[in-house]
């Protein structure tokens, strides 16, 4: 079966010469929920920006359901790979929630009643239907993040990529978002250093450190491997035992 996401030897250096990725190999299959873990500066965000062609690999290839990330496929790639960025104020830029959710599908050429249906369904899936006509800057942070997820769901992506989904959320909003993410029938790649969140939502974790994949396996065994964790500056909250969740 063709993986939803396939990275082969992806390397990237920024124009200033700083090299962030040194040959990353990664497969994500349909229906999987994968956590991408790693300390600050590991190259996680750089990797995410390769998935929809915002950055192009200096070496190696990225393929989404068999379609290579290349300039001629960019629009289709961006429909297939939905990225939810860390700061919802970056993601929500239209005057109202409804217009923001409609922005992606409208760029794909969806119009009229079909567009309305797509928007309504995306907002319903994150429980934000009642806020459709509000301006985004009047929502709470947790609500903004849910709308940000809806803006991407409206494009019916094959894989949903979330950059630090739990950051800055209070415990209740964090749990509500987890419930929503669990309810979605979509392949998920979640970039995070919230390790309990990764354990709660993702059966599999990939550990990225200094631009290479240093661990890939069931989340519980990655988090339970003390030596691996210590070597790559990852720490569980004090007293947290991944085997007892």
């Amino acid at each position: 079966m063709t993986p939803v996401l396939e990275l082969k030897g992806v390397a990237h250096a920024y124009p200033d010469g700083h090299q962030a990725l040194f040959g990353v190999d990664l497969h994500v299959h349909r229906g999987e929920r994968v956590a991408l873990l790693g300390p600050n500066g590991a190259g996680k965000t750089t990797l995410v920006l390769h998935l929809n062609g915002i950055l192009t690999a200096g070496a190696g290839t990225v393929t989404v359901s068999g379609l290579p990330v290349a300039p001629e496929n960019l629009l289709e790639i961006r429909r297939r790979v939905g990225i939810v960025f860390q700061d919802p104020d970056d993601q929500l830029f239209m005057p109202t929630v409804r217009q923001d959710v409609a922005f992606g599908p409208a760029n794909m050429g969806v119009r009229g009643a079909e567009l309305d249906a797509v928007v309504d369904s995306a907002l319903a899936r994150v429980g934000m239907s009642a806020f459709a006509d509000r301006p985004p800057h009047h929502l709470s942070f947790g609500q903004k993040r849910r709308v940000a997820v809806a803006t991407v769901l409206a494009m019916e992506p094959e894989i949903l990529v979330l950059d630090e989904p739990s950051s800055n959320l209070d415990p209740a909003s964090r749990r509500e978002l987890a419930d929503i993410l669990r309810s979605l029938d979509v392949t998920l790649l979640m970039v995070t250093h919230d390790l309990p969140y990764a354990l709660e939502l993702c059966e599999r974790s990939v550990l990225l450190s200094d631009g290479v994949v240093v661990g890939d396996g069931p989340t519980v065994s990655i988090l339970g491997d003390d030596d691996l964790m210590r070597a790559h500056r990852l720490e569980l909250p004090a007293g947290f035992d991944p085997h007892r969740v």
């Binding site: 929809n52 961006r78 990225i83 993601q91």
Partner: peptide, 13 residues
């Protein structure tokens, strides 16, 4: 710049 990235990611052309 980040907003522009987010726009591109949703097919802005």
């Amino acid at each position: 710049e980040r907003v522009h990235l987010a726009m591109l990611s949703r097919g802005y052309s």
